[in-house]
Design a protein around this nucleic acid. Sequence first.
DNA 1: TTGACAATGTTAATCGATTAAGCAAGCCTT
DNA 2: AAGGCTTGCTTAATCGATTAACATTGTCAA
Lengths: 361, 361
Amino acid sequence: MPNKQRGHGGRVTLGDIAADVDLSAAAVSMALRGNSRVSAETQKRVTEAAERLGYVYDRGAAKLRTGQSDTIGIIVGDISNAFFGELVAGVDAAIAPAGKISFLLNAREDVDRQSQLLNRLREHGVDGIILCPAPETDEATIEEIRHWGIPIVQMLRTVADTSGDWVSADYKTGVEALCEHLVRRGHRRIALIGGELEHSATWQRHTGYRAALKRNGIEADLIYRCPLTRRAGRHAIGELLTSETPPTAAVCYNDVVAFGVIAGLRENGIEPGKDFAVTGFDNVEEAAESWPPLTTVATHAREIGDAAGQLLLRRINEPDASREQIIVPTRLIVRQSCGAAAETPQTKHNQKLENAAPRSA
Amino acid sequence: MPNKQRGHGGRVTLGDIAADVDLSAAAVSMALRGNSRVSAETQKRVTEAAERLGYVYDRGAAKLRTGQSDTIGIIVGDISNAFFGELVAGVDAAIAPAGKISFLLNAREDVDRQSQLLNRLREHGVDGIILCPAPETDEATIEEIRHWGIPIVQMLRTVADTSGDWVSADYKTGVEALCEHLVRRGHRRIALIGGELEHSATWQRHTGYRAALKRNGIEADLIYRCPLTRRAGRHAIGELLTSETPPTAAVCYNDVVAFGVIAGLRENGIEPGKDFAVTGFDNVEEAAESWPPLTTVATHAREIGDAAGQLLLRRINEPDASREQIIVPTRLIVRQSCGAAAETPQTKHNQKLENAAPRSA
DNA sequence: TTGACAATGTTAATCGATTAAGCAAGCCTT
DNA sequence: AAGGCTTGCTTAATCGATTAACATTGTCAA
């Protein structure tokens, strides 16, 4: 039985391997990293010995020397939103080829917690940060991180300045497409529901809403701000329906709000998709599976994550390259909730795209 | 203007502070850690200088020396499940007082990816791991981690052996409570829907189902296995309804499946909550806000996370303490989906418990 | 034959924080 | 007054991986 570990506390180090194959630790290091200064044969011997002894690379020690941790941090506002799962998967896919891995942190939409987390990432010496800024994050925060010398890419949202790198979905165009679609179907009183917090993703939607309605000669005065929950959506539609000239359609901030609105409509005896048009945003799994199937806009989370990862890698490698802003296009998905015909070609097509991932413990 | 950084690559180190206050780096280290061997006055001077120079603690370097990284890893199967957000928040709350922080990794219910992630955590030298094992994880895996010398706590699910530390919800009792409730309301043909993958959380539910029905002299033969998605739930109920003696009630694996079943019932012209009873599990936000409000069992995610964090800390500090298994009780929440009276006291009470967290970017 | 140059390593310094061991000055005790 | 304890630091070694600079051997062209 080969002795698994040498003198010290259980960990197998380069030195242990070196002793085993009768080389210097330096040579072992080079061999393991594929440095061409060691012969192929030695490389093989070293690799085998490492395997045999149960060697574990110590990233922390390596980082101390190289300054690279091969680790990036991702901070999002709400882990529980299904959307972010995909986003992170996209980032991982992008950075994996570079040998980097990501750690996910949850800021819970709170600036204070966000800055705590940023500090932790700094102490841990991450190579870069992907941040989905909490509301009220100011430009100074981003600037400070940059000043720390840590590359940072903003994702989904951007703080006021937008001078840095960021990747976002095309919220404006998405909302415009929804509005145009509703107008084509004859709606004139279209409400925009949701979006309490001030950040770029909010005002981009508002801008799209205003632009589309204006283009069609409709006054864009039905913006109802509320939190992004089912409950709020349900409540909002209840209030809107009491007005003198209630809307006939609602463009919701996201799918979650739309589901709330649908529940609220039912509560008021109105059948969503027949008597009233509802649209969402994001195309979460549930959108296709609930009743009526929800007309929405797909924001390609995975692509956005991937782009953010790529951008961050680039910034890490070329800190002084010119800033880049990427807008990932969205796609309108028409289903029944906006009063579409029961069987449009799109509907069939989109249902095929669904994937069935387990969702609970 | 005090010179922000000394010679090297921008990072302020203990040595820089030492130079500033005219002490040795060792003294500075001790001062910052509150070692009583340095005078109070010196401690103050050092703290101030650290602040002024913009010192950032280098956890990686410290870990190299001490062997402690003050970092723990959490691996879950599906980040996008809302449940896990709370779980992680609970863990964070538990470990924060010990000065530790957590990193969240997504195994996507895949054993291979899970073992990749475990290796990464090992390379990073985490102090401990909280694992929600992917299906088909075997005891050997857990044993190996323990062999690595890394404390590990299983959460929500456990692999076959259960000899280690773990924290779980009381799935068995929860399902029993649901079944008993349905039986009391007169149901005799009760289906259990969902639970394809083999792990403890699955068979605990099955055990509870069988126990409750047997106790009431009902044959427990309506177990329908399927993935944990809306789509699967919708499909499942469609199939079950075609049988000769279709069920009159469905106990679903979790809330997500229940929502699918509800959609499927509507599709078949059956009104959930009136013509057919449906129950869920987890009590996600949507349970109270959808229509009809869902009868379900609350699994206190935050508490579970908290318990797992505590347990891990204990294991880190006392590696040889006796193993502990914690079962966190659940709570039955009766709403309308099981055909309850429209306004039960529980319903009102539970709706008050809802919190309104934003759910999208 | 000799000097240049590959090829293949080795030596030693380094990253930043921690801590055991050492040391000087002051104070106390017997 | 001599030895012993405190107090408050300093010195130097250490964690594990990396890499610049140097060393050895062999090959080949001039």
